[in-house]
Design a protein around this nucleic acid. Structure first.
Lengths: 234, 234
DNA sequence: TAGATTGTTAATCGATTAACAATC
DNA sequence: TAGATTGTTAATCGATTAACAATC
């Protein structure tokens, strides 16, 4: 016997009452380890959906979502299928429904609190960078060793001494640390951040960090991006 | 009959006379399309090799190269095999030989000339960012529309008017454009840059760029990195 | 020589795409 | 109803790893 493809209480497009079963799906999904590539694409879908919502577009198909990012429609549907059923056959997806569902899955429906460690060129540029706010990301504080920077602020973000790192990270309930420190201290700083209970690091330092398995590190290495491009020049 | 695994005129470790056959290999490789992931790892190997050379380490095995980056030794050997034979069985790789070979393959043995389009927070941080120089990357010029910024410099890089974009990119023989402009003009700027003959773009703007097939775009999307991390927080 | 490590093949693993019944 | 589009399975494609003969 074939199992039904949708919950019995079928809900009309635009309703939010499908949210409860989804959470369960999401939890199950998390256990069977979703590929990181899928998560990245989810975040890209979210960006498109936000644009569509801003333009008051009510519905979107996997086809058009895919086209605006250069993917295939099958990939969009497969990615979403990891987490549940969000569309209506023959109709497509409700933009605002899918948007909220994806935000919930990614955890950006609540505030994500980040701290920037190292207020050099890159660090302080990020402090003033406006692109985070609309993704529910809040830069709460920054740290540096330079006595001239400590106690000042940039883009509304205060810079504290590295001496107070652990206690402030904990008190401020920081979720993610952005590392923009010199290469020779990166591992030490990472160790301290992890010891303070942080489990997500965005690392701009060109150094491979050794961290415990529960800690996630995302690398952003500008020189390597350029070097990769360089290969393809003729 | 089995074909010999190495050139007849076997050269001792440390010699550079193996370079000529390599170029041929590299060219063949380029035709049968190397995966981009391989190119990225090549660049990571290069980083480790530079550290080893700085510490006067003469030789390295695929095993130790892999360990310092969290890869497997098989992957290191497989990646290198796309481009030729660089090691000596039972001995390993000459650090300086492999380093120079990889630089040649990636094209960072010659100067890579880049321009930064958009001298906002991020753009001007990159202008002062020191991390590029040791990779043979030279930030030659920057562009902006702000009359107050035009004619000034930052980190030794001059800011020019966007009006002169095409002619200056060409005159200065720019290889790669770094895009740090507002989202709503990103596609327009990309079109102009491409029309000026640029075929490599490093894009910091959270917008999917539509470019001709010969143009390579690398995306660096900070908000998406954070959103991806956010998913993994508990 | 004995031990170590490469380059390469085959086996495995994982991700993408095509295709289509189910559904609106 | 006819047309459109989903969710999902199976087929394809690609990337990683294990294993080992060849080599130093």
């Amino acid at each position: 016997m074939k199992k039904s493809r949708r919950n019995p209480e079928t809900v009309p497009l635009g309703s939010t009452s499908r949210r409860k079963p989804l959470r369960q799906d999401a939890r199950r999904a998390r256990i069977e380890q979703i590929p990181k590539k899928v998560i990245k694409r989810l975040s890209l879908y979210l960006r498109v959906l936000r644009n569509l919502e801003m333009n008051s577009v009510p519905r979107v198909s996997s086809q058009s979502l895919a086209e605006s990012l250069g993917f295939t429609s099958a990939q969009v549907r497969k990615d979403l299928a990891y987490f549940g059923q969000f569309g209506v056959p023959g109709v497509g997806y409700s933009v605002s429904d899918l948007l909220h569902n994806l935000e919930h899955i990614l955890g950006t429906d609540r505030e994500v609190r980040v701290a920037i460690i190292g207020a050099g060129n890159l660090g302080s540029a990020l402090m003033s960078y406006g692109g985070f706010a609309r993704h529910g990301v809040r830069i709460v504080m920054a740290f540096d060793t330079d006595i001239h920077k400590i106690g000042t602020e940039r883009g509304g973000v205060w810079i504290f001494s590295m001496d107070s790192l652990e206690e402030r990270l904990q008190a401020a309930e920081i979720d993610i640390a952005i590392l923009t420190v010199p290469a020779d201290v990166a591992q030490d700083v990472a160790d301290r951040v992890v010891a303070a209970g942080i489990s997500g690091i965005l690392n701009f330092v060109p150094v491979h960090l050794r961290v415990p398995p529960h800690v996630r590190v995302q690398y952003v290495d500008l020189a390597i991006e350029i070097e990769t491009l360089s290969y393809y020049l003729r």
